[in-house]
């Protein structure tokens, strides 16, 4: 089933809509020129992951000798953080960065004539 979500122009970068389609909740996010959609159910305890904060990934760069150079925000990787307990998922892939087997259920999205659709 194809469901209309929004006009792309109405979604700013990193803006979202969370919709319920016949009982299934889905979060649809604009990320640059693409759109991704995930089930609003966290693989941890079933929390409303798609209603969580978007945060830049935190990185810890190392020097050549292995010394830690401190923490910094990534300039391009965005994380979706589940509001129940803080599990983080890479917004573009739906994977937990430290446990890639833990992933959000993904839905196919389509951009057609400036409109965003999700296939449920």
């Amino acid at each position: 089933m194809e469901v209309f979500v929004a006009a792309l122009a109405d979604l700013a970068d990193r803006e979202r809509r969370v919709i319920e389609v016949h009982g299934v909740e889905i979060g649809v996010f604009r990320l640059g020129d693409t759109v991704v959609a995930y089930r609003n159910r966290c693989p941890h305890q079933g929390g409303p992951v798609c209603q969580g904060r978007l945060m830049p990934k935190v990185e810890e760069p190392l020097a050549a000798d292995g010394s830690a150079l401190g923490l910094r925000f990534s300039e391009d990787v965005v994380h979706l953080v589940c509001p129940w307990h803080g599990y983080e998922f890479v917004l573009s892939s739906g994977e937990h960065p430290g446990a890639p087997d833990l992933r959000l259920r993904r839905y196919r999205t389509e951009l057609r004539d400036g409109q965003v659709y999700v296939h449920v």
Partner: peptide, 15 residues
Amino acid sequence: MAASPEGVREIWPRE
């Protein structure tokens, strides 16, 4: 969201 088809609704709050 524009007029929603039957069985579809928006969830609030978004965040």
